[in-house]
Simulated assay, not measured.
Amino acid sequence: MAGFAGRRVWIIGASAGMGEAVARALSAEGARLILSARDEAALRRLAADCGGAEVLPLDLARPETLADAVAYLRAGPPLDALICTAAVYDPAPVAEIDPQQAALMVQINILGTLEVARTCPPLLRDGGQFVLFGSVAGWTGLPGGQPYSATKAAVNNLAETLAAELHPRVDVRLVCPGFVRSRLTEKNTFRMPAIISAEEAATHVLRGLRGRRFLIHFPKRFTLAVALLRILPRGLALRLTRRMG
């Protein structure tokens, strides 16, 4: 997408973190936004700062709310882009997993995103962008990352599938951030290398969407190191990840 002025963009997960930062960055460039998340009050505060963006609350844990939103948008003009950043994050070693939190992460991060992928692409114009937020956490198994990392591995895989299935009508993109300051990463008790602000992350996202690459990952000084683990011999990669634990 060459520019965002006048573009109609739906952001799911816009109430906080990277979703909010991306919304503000797109609004500053003149995009016409539709903002969705569970927190309607936060969405309305954001909409007031984004030129009166449209607010469309939904909860990916409740598929009927997504279905209602899709039916509403189907009656309007086609979207230029759909960006889904919504996710739940609660990292833990496998032995310490809270089953209820794990079920919620699967419901939102995997099943909710899958429902977005199943029902939303027809809302896009030909050549429109369908953008999923995965994570470098899904690139390789790291200590303490479960079950969030597993859900993001699923999203990464889903985006690759969609890039094949929806081509050429839909321009599918996958965003894989490293550590980004947010209320989610505040839960981490370990040192987060190369952590960046949500505003810096949004800059990377918009730059990537203007380009042609399927995979948008940042910051490179961190993501390239994680990518190296994927291409090392498995035995060597496992020795390195054990040291991280």
Rank of each mutant, 00 (worst) to 15 (best):
V55Q: 02
L166K: 09
L56Y: 00
G6R: 04
G211Q: 12
A21E: 06
G208V: 08
D68I: 03
W139M: 08
L111A: 13
L158N: 02
L33Y: 03
V226Q: 09
R212K: 13
P63Q: 04
L206I: 03
P219L: 12
L162Y: 05
I231T: 15
H167I: 09
L232F: 11
T189M: 10
G127M: 11
S149R: 04
P99W: 08
R239Q: 14
T223N: 05
W139G: 05
L166R: 06
C176S: 14
Q100D: 15
E115M: 11
E96M: 08
A227V: 09
A227Y: 13
A69L: 02
Y89W: 08
E115F: 08
P143A: 10
D126A: 15
F4W: 15
G76N: 10
G17W: 00
E20K: 05
I12P: 00
Y72V: 15
T185R: 07
L58G: 00
R210I: 06
L174F: 09
A237H: 05
V155G: 03
A81L: 07
A164S: 11
P99A: 05
A47Q: 01
L114N: 08
A153Y: 04
P57L: 02
D49E: 15
G13E: 01
P177A: 06
A23D: 04
R181S: 11
